[in-house]
């Protein structure tokens, strides 16, 4: 099987994730979609690593996973706090970041 198919899959996953981020209102779902995008990127990185025969891509993928883990911690904490104060996990309700 040609490695290019993995790339197509990664692109598909990334698009799915992006659409989810842009279209869904629920913060948790948005959050999961972000994870999906990150993992799509990871898949692409690993594929490149395989195609070029060096380890750079795999190393990058590890970095992404670490960052994603950290992000989950912070992100979930924020979502929970927002839910507690506003009784809603909708991202559109928390539109206070404007003048």
């Amino acid at each position: 099987m040609s490695p290019e198919n993995y790339l197509y899959l990664a692109a598909l996953l990334f698009t799915l994730g992006a659409c989810g981020v842009l279209l869904r209102r629920n913060a948790i779902v948005v959050f999961m979609c972000v994870e999906l995008m990150l993992n799509a990127a990871n898949l692409a990185l690993v594929t490149f690593s395989r195609m070029h025969g060096n380890l750079d891509g795999q190393i990058m993928a590890f970095f992404v996973m670490v960052v994603a883990a950290a992000e989950v911690v912070v992100g979930l904490a924020i979502i929970v706090t927002v839910y507690r104060s506003r009784h809603s996990a909708s991202v559109d309700d928390a539109s206070l970041m404007k003048l």
Partner: peptide
């Protein structure tokens, strides 16, 4: 200024 509407998704 109006572009900064506070909706996270539009920023996205």
């Amino acid at each position: 200024r109006r572009v900064q509407n506070g909706f996270a998704r539009s920023y996205a």
